[in-house]
Design a protein around this nucleic acid. Structure first.
Lengths: 202, 202
DNA sequence: ATTCTATCTTGACAGTGTCTAGATTGTTTT
DNA sequence: AAAACAATCTAGACACTGTCAAGATAGAAT
């Protein structure tokens, strides 16, 4: 990398593009992420990226898919501790919110309508997101068995409801409406109180 | 209206623009809503709208503000019934989801980052959204007093947590990820179970 | 050595938001 | 009623966008 691209053929343009795009997304936001600017940064002609990605949508899908893989990894690390306790659950909730805040542009790309509604989600993206989702549902099931989450419904439904709640908080935070960053902890804790089963005593 | 605009001065271009824009947004989505197309539809030159709206952001703010006023109205109607029961609360939850689904593009504009993060929220928009929020918090307080919602925290925090949850569900639905429309009812009910206090018996 | 294919380039087109300068009209002041 | 003013609308232009088509270059396969 950083071969000052003197050769006609770049070599690993595809990966370089994804990296540069992720970088640009993180630093300047989705709005500043254009195919042309990207090509410029990488040091290649405007249309060169189109030999590696069908269109902008495809590039964005690749970035988003990476994001889901990151999240899946985080989840797996927590799950593999085999400790399906309330504390671990809380830990992940804060980790999730933290991820959304630190990578707000990426988070928006991953879950927003740009790809899922306006655009066309890639097969890779669909797979990556489904994996993250499945991971969550499995964990919810374990948490239900440990009495952390309610068993009044299937893991799927409880998983959807809890994730949706989390997602809503994350969105309010990163979209900048109704909620300011100072009180994240308080709000997350209030939300946790709604989600987690209250036990009389330990 | 529909005066076939033969006059040089349109007369009520501002209102016409907002209406046409709302219409276009609803029918073809935010992506298809461009200033130029809008001007074309209304039958006016490309730059005419700029005499009524500073920029596209301002137009979108006006549309979004209308949306908040709609929602505030819905909320007020329910509140004014003075019936702060669990049933009324549930009713509103479904009404909220219904609103998001029927007016998904508007909902996205109202709560999305296009205006709040990427763009610059108008004073009008800020006011309208704050009113809707205040309305909700007031109602949450009443619901707390009636034992429908938990009193373990301030109306503000409980209001934020519940609204965020609702918002998350709405977003998953209209953005088309992780959730399909068939199971809306089930998911909303699961979420309600998490939010509403369980009473031993009536 | 020649063909083939992957990769990259330039040129072009239609679309976008919005600035500037000028035209037209309605309103106010004289 | 005439003149000045302000509101409203227009056409032209600029920089930017995604992406298509046709051609150039280089490495791999024959």
């Amino acid at each position: 990398m950083t071969t000052t691209k003197k050769t006609y053929h770049h070599g690993d343009l595809k990966i370089t593009l994804i990296q540069a795009a992720s970088d640009l997304l993180h630093k300047e936001g989705a709005n500043a992420l254009s195919m042309r600017k990207l090509a410029d940064i990488v040091g290649v002609s405007r249309t060169a990226p189109y030999h590696h990605f069908k269109d902008k949508n495809a590039l964005l899908c690749a970035i988003a898919a990476n994001g889901f893989e990151q999240q899946t990894k985080q989840l797996r690390q927590l799950i593999e501790q085999q400790d399906h306790s309330e504390e671990t659950f809380k830990k992940y909730v804060f980790l999730y919110i933290h991820f959304a805040q630190q990578q707000s542009e990426l988070y928006d790309l991953m879950y927003g309508r740009t790809l899922w509604q306006t655009g066309t989600p890639n097969d890779d993206l669909k797979l990556a997101s489904r994996q993250a989702f499945k991971c969550w549902i499995d964990w919810v099931e374990a948490l239900q068995k440990n009495g952390v989450l309610t068993s009044s419904n299937t893991p799927l439904r409880v998983g959807q409801a809890t994730w949706a709640s989390l997602h809503g908080l994350a969105r309010f935070l990163i979209d900048g409406i109704y909620v300011d960053e100072e009180n994240v902890t308080e709000m997350a804790e209030q939300m946790l109180e709604m989600m987690v089963i209250k036990h009389p005593l330990a």
